[in-house]
């Protein structure tokens, strides 16, 4: 029994059917971790991207260093740091939040590069026109550069959303009961791993396909308002 749901080991089919709702509990957690992690990656990545294109190198270089550090160290190490080391300094976060934060921090390094590339793709003349019109640099960024960069950025970000979803199982090592963790516990308790793990794989396949379609839909239907992206 798990999440108050009994499994039925009378046949393999019955077993699969009976654990399906249990796995769905895990799936919800997986999706939650994906969304929260992605959201953190979006915001933090934007901050990093802005810092990396700051006018002074005293801001640029540390930001680049942080990005490089995050990107070149395994997600698992960052996760362990947040989960085991931070409490030593008196900061204890719930496992779920720790996991989502680790994902978000890890992927902010990637999203910041996506932002940067998207921002640099906006023609130099746009900045010059904004400067000639005396628009403040913050306004130029939020209302001239960003709206033109976003349609280029969205598809690449979507791909990272799928990647984050596929990295969520790592959180099971810090006791987050996402789908894989749930499947493993079912296996531990029943001795049958094949069916729960296969079902997790299958569910992942379905989710990634749906997400990929979503990204493609967004890409083609995004309002580009006067932008031609070539």
């Amino acid at each position: 029994m798990f999440f108050g749901i009994e499994w039925d080991t009378s046949s393999q089919w019955a077993f699969a059917v009976s654990i399906f709702p249990i796995l769905l509990h895990g799936l919800v957690v997986t999706l939650q971790a994906t969304v929260v992690g992605f959201f953190i990656a979006l915001i933090l990545g934007l901050v990093l991207a802005a810092l990396k294109s700051a006018p002074t190198r005293f801001i640029r270089w540390p930001a680049k260093l942080v990005t490089e550090f995050i990107r070149d160290t395994p997600l698992l190490i960052q996760l362990f740091f947040l989960f085991y080391v931070l409490p030593e300094f008196g900061l204890t976060l719930p496992a779920f939040l720790t996991g989502a934060l680790a994902l978000g921090v890890q992927y902010s390094a990637y999203t910041s590069e996506v932002y940067r590339a998207g921002l640099e793709a906006v023609a130099k003349g746009q900045r010059e026109a904004a400067r000639a019109l005396n628009l403040a640099s913050a306004r130029t960024f939020t209302h001239i550069i960003l709206p033109q960069a976003i349609p280029r950025i969205i598809p690449a970000l979507g791909n990272y959303l799928v990647s984050i979803m596929k990295d969520v199982p790592v959180l099971s090592v810090v006791t987050v009961l996402e789908m894989l963790g749930v499947a493993k516990i079912i296996g531990d308790r029943t001795g049958g791993y094949l069916i729960p793990l296969s079902m997790v794989g299958g569910l992942y396949l379905v989710m990634t396909i749906i997400a990929s379609f979503g990204v493609r839909y967004l890409d083609t239907h995004l309002p580009k308002r006067g932008l031609s992206l070539k």
């Binding site: 023609a123 005396n134 709206p147 932008l227 031609s228």
Partner: peptide, 21 residues
């Protein structure tokens, strides 16, 4: 190269800076 803001309407191109600046 004109450097108009492509994501703004013609009128918005003309009002953005006067309003903001």
């Amino acid at each position: 190269q004109f450097n108009l803001f492509p994501h703004m309407t013609v009128l918005r191109n003309l009002t953005e800076a006067p309003v903001q600046v």
